[in-house]
């Protein structure tokens, strides 16, 4: 048994979800999303919990966790800024924007600030190129992002306000 546990409500939700699929293994991806929501990242005990809950081998869960980029095995900063630099965003200044952001936070893409407040990652096309450049901030899409907007985001993030 692992130390981490899902809440009873979460377990109910998982039980209902599993019934939607011919086999429980289909629920690995959605249950990993739930685990990310509940625990922030996917430690090995959390992955074991997902495996036990669905009655699949830990290896199956590990294979999924390591294949898909959205699953994080390590915690990230309190605010996650994902900057798209693919074609549409690049043609609208995304590289400069990412460089400015990293300069302001004194980190490189892929890093977290020392105070654990911000993590910045460079991501692939977010499927919203009409509003390029796009930054996904704590899950929300921000469109036509400017340097000024980033200043606001950083100021808000520092004061613990939800961005």
């Amino acid at each position: 048994m692992s130390d981490v546990q899902f809440s009873p409500q979460r377990l109910d939700e998982i039980l209902t979800l599993v019934k939607r699929y011919p086999k429980a293994q289909s629920a690995i991806l959605p249950v990993l999303h739930m685990a990310m929501e509940d625990f922030g990242h996917l430690s090995i005990p959390t992955q074991q919990l997902v495996a036990d809950t669905l009655g699949v081998r830990l290896m199956m869960v590990r294979e999924v966790v390591t294949f898909y980029t959205m699953y994080r095995e390590k915690p990230c900063g309190r605010n996650l800024l994902e900057v798209c630099t693919n074609a549409g965003c690049m043609l609208n200044g995304a590289d400069e924007l990412l460089a400015k952001l990293c300069e302001k936070l004194k980190i490189q893409p892929g890093e977290t600030t020392d105070d654990d407040m911000f993590s910045v990652i460079e991501v692939e096309c977010l499927g919203a190129c009409g509003g390029a450049p796009i930054v996904q901030i704590n899950g929300d899409y921000h469109e036509n992002v400017t340097e000024h907007h980033l200043d606001d985001v950083i100021a808000k993030g520092r004061t613990h306000d939800p961005i």
């Binding site: 086999k23 293994q25 289909s26 629920a27 690995i28 991806l29 990993l32 999303h33 699949v56 199956m60 294979e63 999924v64 294949f67 898909y68 980029t69 959205m70 699953y71 692939e124």
Partner: peptide
């Protein structure tokens, strides 16, 4: 899905829906 462009390819999508890479 969980961040993998390849899952747009229909058979990869099926694999993914079966709980695999």
């Amino acid at each position: 899905g969980a961040g993998a462009y390849i899952c747009g390819e229909e058979t990869a999508l099926i694999e993914s829906l079966e709980g695999r890479p």
